[in-house]
Design a protein around this nucleic acid. Structure first.
Lengths: 196, 196
DNA sequence: ATTTTAAATGAATGAATATTCATTTATATT
DNA sequence: AATATAAATGAATATTCATTCATTTAAAAT
């Protein structure tokens, strides 16, 4: 029995992400992907059931990797500031080290594959973040608020900032460049907003 | 001379936005759009030079409408809290009254048309928001910070919250529903973060 | 060395894509 | 009423799309 070339499978996944990020879903096709990988289109249909399966499989796999990073060193019973800091470190590190994959997720989020992916992903955090918030509130470190409000204040600015950095949108005079200093300056303001 | 049916042109623009939002750029085509409008495909090429021109024209037009709303009643020399409140009111009102158009912009932002649109749009705000921030800082109402940091804290949470509302992503137990109360609760926290 | 089995392929499929064109239709001007 | 002119069309274009299939290739098992 011939054995499957796992390197080729990895190449397909990587090139798919790159292609989708570069040309959008509207400029992505199975034929182009095969060409970019220098394999036959038919081979793609050995690895995946079809285009949808390919995209969703990759999304799920990368989503799991991302979720794993986000959750590193984090426990729901950490102090408010320490828990928040670890969440910011984890997210920032992932976004910096996986800029392409992050843009891939941004594509997904506004595509027709959105729903099927996001549900799976969110479930993993719902419980742990929810528990963290509950603990922090019951210790009086933060006021009670809807989970979505907390999420928006706690992480909204971080994602916004990373987007400025990655998309190179300079709204200020000089082009914006992310740095540890800017990151923690922003973090400080977020803590100020949430902390009692 | 036969006269152009402007209602038909409007219908095309509206259906284009709806189609792109519903099926994404990957599920949008000139033929489908024509069918949805019950006109000939060829007619689309009388209104627009082609697919790209159609999308960019619509984006620019809607962008101008949005920019106009955002800027209503706003002056760079308003007090910190008043200026911020007006920005939040304007943005929130637009997002609530134009949920589809907002999702259309979200699609654009992560598509291959991104750059051509965003540059035009941002330019309109750069100056006025920049001036507002400068005034506020020089009056000592807020500490100096990069414009991007300000933007991320000031508006990041609002957009994040609206997204929770519109995409119906319930990360909390019960499905999240936006309300004036939640909006101003979040606004209060943002002010707390930024105000000296 | 032969057999078995799944991987990999090249070429093809019909459907959908963006765009064009010769023709028809409606209206403003003469 | 006749003419001029741009709007609107239906049908066609070549190209690209996702998917399939008969065939070949490589390696594990015999």
């Amino acid at each position: 029995m011939r054995i499957r070339d796992e390197e080729k499978v990895s190449l397909v996944k990587q090139k798919a992400i790159e292609g989708i990020v570069e040309y959008g879903f509207e400029g992505f096709s199975m034929n182009k992907l095969a060409k970019a990988c220098e394999i036959s289109v038919a081979t793609l249909y050995i690895y995946f059931k079809g285009k949808d399966d390919l995209i969703i499989s990759i999304a799920r796999e990368e989503g799991d990797r991302m979720a794993a990073v986000f959750i590193e060193n984090f426990h729901p019973d950490l102090s408010f500031e320490e828990g928040m800091r670890i969440q910011w470190i984890n997210r920032y590190r992932y976004l910096q080290q996986n800029p392409i994959t992050y843009l891939f997720f941004e594509q997904l989020r506004t595509s027709s594959y959105q729903v099927r992916f996001l549900e799976d992903f969110m479930v993993k955090f719902k419980v742990v973040i929810s528990a963290f918030m509950h603990n922090v509130v019951s210790r009086g470190e933060m006021n009670a608020m809807p989970l979505e409000v907390f999420w928006s204040i706690a992480y909204g600015p971080l994602y916004s900032l990373v987007r400025f950095d990655q998309e190179g949108q300079s709204i200020g005079g000089k082009p914006f460049k992310m740095s540890d200093e800017v990151l923690w300056q922003t973090f400080g303001l977020v803590i100020k907003a949430l902390k009692n």
